[in-house]
Design a protein around this nucleic acid. Structure first.
Lengths: 349, 349
DNA sequence: CAGAATATCCAAAACGTTTTAAACTGGCAA
DNA sequence: TTGCCAGTTTAAAACGTTTTGGATATTCTG
């Protein structure tokens, strides 16, 4: 049904070897022959059989991506964004994406399964943990991969990350300059590397301004509306002592929950409480549409896709991991959800 | 590196043919030989090479899924939900999902590309159009596939759909019973089959109650917050004559936009305007968290995954398409965003 | 013009599997 | 003894590609 090298060879009275070479741009084939082969390939609508290619060459032009499945898939919004963009870029290079969700307790299991099938050239990881067992496993198996984000400080793999330390630092600096002294952090999931970096940036910057924050002013959790709402309600209840006058949120969704919590408590933004979030520029809930418009640190997830794909391609071609590492700086966009601290609330906790 | 049939054969002094048969449960192999082979396979951590298998057997245990890429990926929330659930179920049967985004103008192009690679056993389609060229193409190529949703009324392919006619019918019935006579529809994208069915259900039910709706009361668009907001603002402006007293929304996100629009116009829900949405039960924005809590027709997207995966598996095994078709009924959940029509607004348009 | 270099092509092996056709065992009946 | 049959096993072909190691013309060198 589908045309093969043999078909083209038969058509032109050539061997499959020559046809293969002609199509793959080897130098030792006559220009006229090559033209004829290319014409025939076009005419017969020839497409190389990936499986056969991989079987002999060891390359399949397929890479894998595994989604951590959580009860609420909301945590994977970022995953999806990356996957879409990545796939688009990889498709340009005729590389396919094999997708699998992680349904096991063991996060390494899906990688083991996929690698065992012997069918993939490499992997893209996202949302790395602080000490990520997947990274350890892939390194151990010698499988090429790139990471969106990065785990520890000494990474020996290609990655594209944003400067999460700076995310917190810039936000805290703004709030401190506005006079806030009681600042809370609605952080991401506890084990995630980015959360850790944001937390460190948060604490270090507070310290730089001579502040500290009680432990109850920091919450970890899946960055969704619920998390923002429940944490906001609790923090603003006064149960923990004087409530925060400002919040850092790990995402715009969390901020939405915080707006709701503030409203429930009869507080207005930004007069009673300032809110600032990190904005991945997901299309679902735009920071600019908030009322009042949300102040954010911003680093569009989508910007990571092309660099990540390119890093992977270059890695597969044998490039040095160390030369494929990028850290991107977020920008700060001041809108209307942040303002000077309220009169009489300038005291630290 | 990885153990092959040859390795096992060498280990036991058997031919690859026997080893292959032993592992695949053929009857003509000695029980003792089979036991030995299975032991050796286990010991050497043997995993069959998918590519080699497919090359000769024609089956790869890989299926494809293509995402339509829009400017705002929000439209693909449903796609993702389906993909996650599907992948989980397929993984149980050791089937992998190959993913690609549609970056072309031609919606068929990615399918052509993937089929040409000769690497996939079948496809899952979602969000079918009224006359979907992808379905036509796959049928023409004789490639097995299943559809989430369905295109025309006479489908000769396996599908899992919800009764979108009933979605509108139940919502309109509720609103009509509450006395509403000016009902607007914030529908999904115009070409999508589900939008069409919702529109038909909408119009037919209105008619049943002796109502009609001006064309400007129906808007099509990507079901996101923006769409709800802009349509809501326009419809409530009075520019189109007496404004609607009730809205049907294609999703909870759209409803969120409508809440905002109503607030901007100084209207309260449900006193001035009733709002009802269809709820796919996406975790991001829960209908119950709305203020006031959102009345919905409900049919969780996630429920479709297992049936869809099973349909595909059975289709790949050769089952009749006609026997793999399911239509699911939505439920109506009345909360606080719908109420009796306001005094003096009972007149039709 | 001989010999060598070059350009161009081909046959065959290889990748790891499944499957077809054939071959080898015993055991048993004739 | 011969032939046959069932129960096992194997050799070899096939899938579609890449690549190795020649082979055959053609051109160049002296």
């Amino acid at each position: 049904m589908r045309a093969t090298l043999k078909d083209i060879g038969a058509e032109l009275g050539l061997s499959v070897a020559t046809v293969s070479r002609a199509l793959n741009g080897f130098p030792e084939v006559n220009a006229k022959t090559r033209a004829a082969v290319e014409e025939a390939a076009e005419r017969l609508n020839y497409r190389p059989n990936r499986l056969a290619q991989k079987l002999v060459s060891g390359r399949s032009n397929m890479v894998g991506m595994v989604a951590r499945m959580t009860k609420d898939a909301a945590a994977d919004r970022g995953f999806v964004e990356i996957m879409l963009g990545l796939s688009a870029r990889l498709a340009e290079k005729d590389i396919d994406l094999v997708f699998q969700v992680d349904v096991d307790a063991d996060p390494v299991a899906p990688y083991r399964r996929l690698i065992a099938k012997n069918t993939l050239d490499g992997f893209i990881l996202n949302a790395p943990l602080i000490d990520d067992p997947r990274i350890a496993y892939l390194n151990e198996m010698g499988v090429p991969f790139v990471v969106h984000g990065r785990a520890g400080e000494t990474a020996d793999y290609p990655y594209y990350d944003i400067d999460n330390h700076a995310v917190s630092a810039r936000a805290v600096t703004l709030l401190a300059d506005l006079g806030h002294r009681r600042i809370a952090l609605a952080n991401g999931v506890a084990g995630d590397a980015y959360s850790r970096r944001r937390l460190i940036g948060f604490n270090q910057t507070l310290e730089r301004f001579g502040m500290a924050t009680p432990e109850v002013f920091v919450a970890h959790g899946t960055p969704n509306e619920d998390h923002g709402y429940t944490f906001g309600l609790a923090a603003l209840s006064g149960r923990f002592g004087a409530p925060p006058t400002a919040f850092l949120c790990s995402s715009t969704l969390v901020a939405a929950g915080l707006y709701r919590a503030a409203a429930d408590r009869g507080l207005t933004v930004p007069d009673d409480v300032s809110i600032i979030a990190h904005d991945d520029a997901m299309p679902a809930l735009r920071a600019i549409n908030f009322d009042p418009a949300l102040t954010v640190t911003r680093a569009p997830l989508r910007d990571a896709c092309v660099p990540l794909a390119d890093k992977l391609i270059r890695r597969l071609a044998g490039a040095e991991p160390k030369r494929l590492q990028t850290t991107f700086e977020p920008e700060l966009i001041i809108r209307r959800s942040t303002g000077p601290v309220k009169q009489g609330e300038e005291d630290p906790w």
